[in-house]
Every structure is written in structure tokens, then in C-alpha cells.
Write a protein that binds this DNA or RNA. Structure first.
Length: 294
DNA sequence: TCTGGGGTCCTAGGACCC
DNA sequence: TCTGGGGTCCTAGGACCC
């Protein structure tokens, strides 16, 4: 699929969005109806043929053979099944891929999307976690359909995510694919088997974490402006402290020393720790030399 | 579920600047 | 200086995702 020239956004180690719109435009023959996968809308058959004309979904159907081929290749080369969702945007594609999990191929047609979403719990929407779910439940919103019908101000329920959430509820999503692979932060943390405040143990741990982080920075030729330490206590309270540096750091020694300095200054190891961690952000290309402004 | 690890993005307050 | 407005950067915490 990569060879087709599709735009790819890698989300994680085993998940990615592919924009096949260019590719599909070049595909000659539309898929035959025999090639179509089952569409996902549960209990919604042909009864709503009005609205969006069927032609709008044509590009989606054309992508299906590509999705099949992708699954076949993954299995042939890795022995792994994969789930693929075909839809007109990221939100729906993700939902579709989740729909038939172990080895699925699901298409959500444009003309069915709002209806397809209605019976689903709000939690299926990307960006709605435990807290937002609670907030929505509080006002009686349980399904995406409830969300669609809710007349109130979404901002009050979900903050700045509110307006977007409303759009999502109708299956509308205009987020572009982001093919870049820039890293914004690098971190390392460890939870101990037994809580500890023994300095040698903590130091060894920090040392390793600093080295891990430095190695990653080095690989990407990055330097970090901000360094953060994190500790967690027995009661699970978690505290972070950070410093922003004048001169970005790159090497393990610097990172380690700064971490020790922060921990000491803030007296964070006054009780045994369950977790200790280290992270850097404010990443930028390593300064080879400062170029003259011209 | 006595709660891992590596990330991204948002929020809110404060310092500081013009 | 009993007190504006707009902006940036920094800090700490938290929601969410895989």
C-alpha cells in the first residue's frame, strides 16, 4: 500500500491511517457489488435510500479491494490478522476498524453514518474517556444518538472539545492526516516492586533513564529545552517538577544531574517512592551553530 | 483491577513584556 | 500607583490514547 503513494499517518506501533483518495481515483473499475463488505449499520438495511446519493460512497467501495490486499499482505508477511475500517474520515475509519475486531473489514458509507452512530455508547468516540463519559451521563447523554439530539451547549459539558464532539456525533470529522513523525517529548519511568527511598536505588534508576532518553535524543539529533522529573508515592499521588534550560541538553550526564538537582531542590524524596520518572520536552534540532540572521 | 509505560493535548495561574 | 490590555512563556496537573 505504501507503494501506491497513499498518505500515511502512523498512530502507534500497530495502527495507522491511510488516505487512499488519490489512489482510489486512479482505480479504473468500481468494485462490483460482490466485492462489497457488509456495511456496519446495524439494523439499517435499505430502508433509508434517500439523502446522500449512492455515488458519494463509490470511492469508499473502490478502496475495499485495497483493504483486502493489505490484510492479505500483513498475514502473508507477519502471520498476523488485522482489522481495517474504510470510511470518509479518521473518526469513522477508526470506529469501523474497531467494529469487527480480530480480523475485520468494515465500511461505513457516508449516507449511513449518522444512523450507524446513534445506538453506540458515547464512549466509542475518540476523545471521550471516563471523565467526559461521566459528565455526559450526568445530563442523560448515554448514546451518540443522545448526543446528536442534545439541544444544550456542548462547551459546558466538554470544554473546548464540545463543538468537535457534536460534529463527531454526526460522523463529521475534518481532521487532516498528519504524516509527520516529529517527536515532542521523550520520557522514561519505572514503578518499583516495593516503594523505596534508598538513594543508591533511585540514582541507579535515574541514571538508566537518563541514558535511555539521551540515546533517543541522539538518534534523532535533538536537544531538549525542558526537563521534568516525576514521582509517585504510596497513596498514588503523583507529582511532577520541571525546569526550562537556557541551553538545551543532550547528554545523559547533564540530564541525570539536572534530575537529581530538581528532586533535591523540591525535596521530593521525603517519603518512599512507588515510581520515579524522567522526561524531556521542548525538543529542537541540535544546534550545530547559530546561523546569522540574514 | 490497589492501579504499567510512552506519548499528545488542554487548562489555569503566574511572571513578564510592551 | 487600588490598577488596562494584549501577548508570550513557564509550570503543574489531568484527560485521553495506544
Amino acid at each position: 500500500v505504501a507503494q501506491t503513494g497513499a498518505l500515511i499517518e502512523q498512530v502507534s506501533i500497530d495502527e495507522a491511517y491511510l488516505d487512499l483518495s488519490e489512489v482510489v481515483a486512479r482505480v479504473v473499475a468500481p468494485a462490483t457489488s460482490a466485492d462489497r463488505p457488509p456495511t456496519a449499520a446495524p439494523g439499517t438495511g435499505a430502508e433509508h435510500s434517500g439523502g446522500t446519493p449512492w455515488e458519494a460512497d463509490d470511492p469508499l467501495f473502490r478502496a475495499v479491494p485495497l483493504a483486502r490486499e493489505l490484510k492479505r499482505r500483513i498475514f502473508a508477511e507477519r502471520g498476523l490478522t488485522a482489522s481495517v475500517g474504510v470510511a470518509a474520515n479518521k473518526l469513522l475509519a477508526k470506529l469501523a476498524s474497531d467494529f469487527n475486531k480480530p480480523d475485520g473489514l468494515t465500511l461505513i458509507p457516508e449516507r449511513d453514518k449518522a444512523l450507524f452512530l446513534r445506538p453506540m455508547p458515547v464512549r466509542v468516540i475518540h476523545g471521550v474517556g471516563k471523565v467526559t463519559e461521566q459528565a455526559l451521563n450526568q445530563v442523560g447523554i448515554r448514546t451518540v444518538g443522545d448526543l446528536q439530539d442534545y439541544p444544550g451547549e456542548m462547551r459546558a459539558l466538554a470544554g473546548s472539545f464540545g463543538p468537535k464532539l457534536k460534529q463527531f456525533a454526526f460522523g463529521e470529522d475534518d481532521r487532516p492526516l498528519e504524516p509527520g513523525d516529529e517527536v515532542k517529548s521523550v520520557s522514561s519511568e519505572e514503578t518499583f516492586l516495593h516503594d523505596t527511598d534508598e538513594r543508591p536505588v533511585l540514582r541507579r534508576c535515574l541514571r538508566e533513564q537518563a541514558e535511555e532518553i539521551a540515546a533517543k535524543l541522539k538518534r534523532r539529533r535533538l536537544a531538549a529545552k525542558t526537563l521534568q522529573v516525576k514521582v509517585r508515592y504510596r497513596d498514588f499521588t503523583t507529582v511532577t517538577r520541571q525546569v526550562t534550560l537556557e541551553d538545551p541538553v543532550t547528554d545523559a550526564g547533564q540530564i541525570y544531574r539536572l534530575a537529581c538537582f530538581l528532586l533535591a531542590r523540591e525535596r521530593l524524596v521525603s517519603r518512599p517512592l512507588r515510581l520515579i520518572g524522567l522526561g524531556v520536552s521542548g525538543l529542537g534540532e541540535i544546534a550545530g551553530r547559530q546561523l546569522a540572521l540574514l
